[in-house]
């Protein structure tokens, strides 16, 4: 059962999940904000793809850029309009705000477009299949692996080599002290939201490509996946989020092939039970990271 096809499937699923988890944890690391609106960035990316590709019939490379840009812009706007005014408020107030933002965005598309799912036109090569060493797989599975690899390498270079990256790492360790270095709070937080939106935007393309459709509730599943992956991997480090994403992809695929058919509908519940059990034994996740409870404010 564990053949090359399984490996490719797991890697591509893990890549997608890793992107989702990383986008969530970048913001959490700095703001200590559990962003329930994060899934909606994926949803917005999906709708941008729908508008650009299906409605306007733009060339595929333009549609992909537009999808990513839409997620980035919306992510930044939510920071500016909703999260910045509540930055100094309690953690619960921030969580409720993010949930309200999520509901707001869902209902905006519900009112402006429709509650029904819309078909999304994806680049023609996404669903083509190739055969490598006897394993047949759609091109998009290989693409997500490659794109994720490039993004992760780029991001780690940015975080390690640029001053902004250093400032962001410093801010997720000690936020106030970072400001004492002259680093503007808004700069690192905005950067975190922009990168978070970028990752969600890229993920949205591949997420939407699996069902080739988008609806107002499209963001719910990616959000949960990011949550679980982050909890598994550890919420205090970016490496943890990536590891968590891949581990989650592996568990998910293993459950899919081992659970009896009658239990498949409980697969999500199984995942969450696993998460809770996991937290029992390792509350900080796989990768512990520098643990601080300091909140911005």
């Amino acid at each position: 059962m564990i053949d090359l096809e399984f490996v490719i499937n797991t890697l591509s699923l893990g890549s997608l999940y890793a992107l989702l988890a990383l986008g969530l944890v970048l913001v959490y690391g700095i703001l200590k904000l559990v962003n329930f609106a994060y899934g909606e960035y994926v949803m917005v990316g999906g709708y941008a793809l729908y508008i650009a590709a299906t409605l306007l019939g733009m060339p595929w490379y333009v549609t992909l850029v537009i999808a990513v840009l839409a997620a980035v812009v919306v992510s930044y706007l939510t920071e500016l309009v909703a999260f910045r005014p509540v930055r100094n408020k309690s953690a619960n107030a921030q969580i409720i705000t993010s949930f309200a933002v999520s509901i707001f965005l869902q209902n905006v598309v519900l009112i402006l477009i429709s509650s029904r799912a819309r078909a999304v036109q994806l680049p023609f090569f996404f669903s083509k299949t190739v055969t490598i060493a006897g394993a047949t797989t759609p091109v998009r599975n290989l693409l997500i692996i490659a794109v994720t690899a490039v993004l992760l390498v780029t991001l780690s270079v940015v975080m390690k080599k640029t001053v902004l990256g250093m400032a962001m790492r410093a801010a997720s360790d000690k936020f106030t002290t970072t400001r004492l270095m002259g680093v503007p709070a808004n700069l690192v937080i905005s950067a975190a939201f922009l990168i978070s939106g970028l990752l969600a935007g890229v993920a949205s393309i591949f997420w939407v490509s699996r069902s080739a459709s988008v609806d107002p509730l499209t963001g719910a599943a990616p959000l949960l996946i990011a949550f679980i992956a982050v909890v598994i991997g550890g919420m205090h480090s970016t490496v943890g989020a990536v590891v968590g994403g891949f581990v989650y992809g592996l568990i998910f695929n293993l459950l899919s092939i081992t659970l009896p058919a009658s239990m498949i509908s409980y697969r999500d519940a199984f995942m969450f039970v696993l998460v809770v059990l996991f937290l029992l034994f390792r509350p900080a996740g796989i990768i512990k990271g520098g643990y601080t409870e300091e909140r911005v404010g």
Binding site: K32, V34, V231, F272, V275, V276
Partner: peptide, 14 residues
């Protein structure tokens, strides 16, 4: 913190 919020959320989903 994060883990608490997420697990209570996950429990609702379960």
């Amino acid at each position: 913190d994060f883990a608490g919020v997420i697990t209570l959320f996950a429990t609702l989903i379960v």
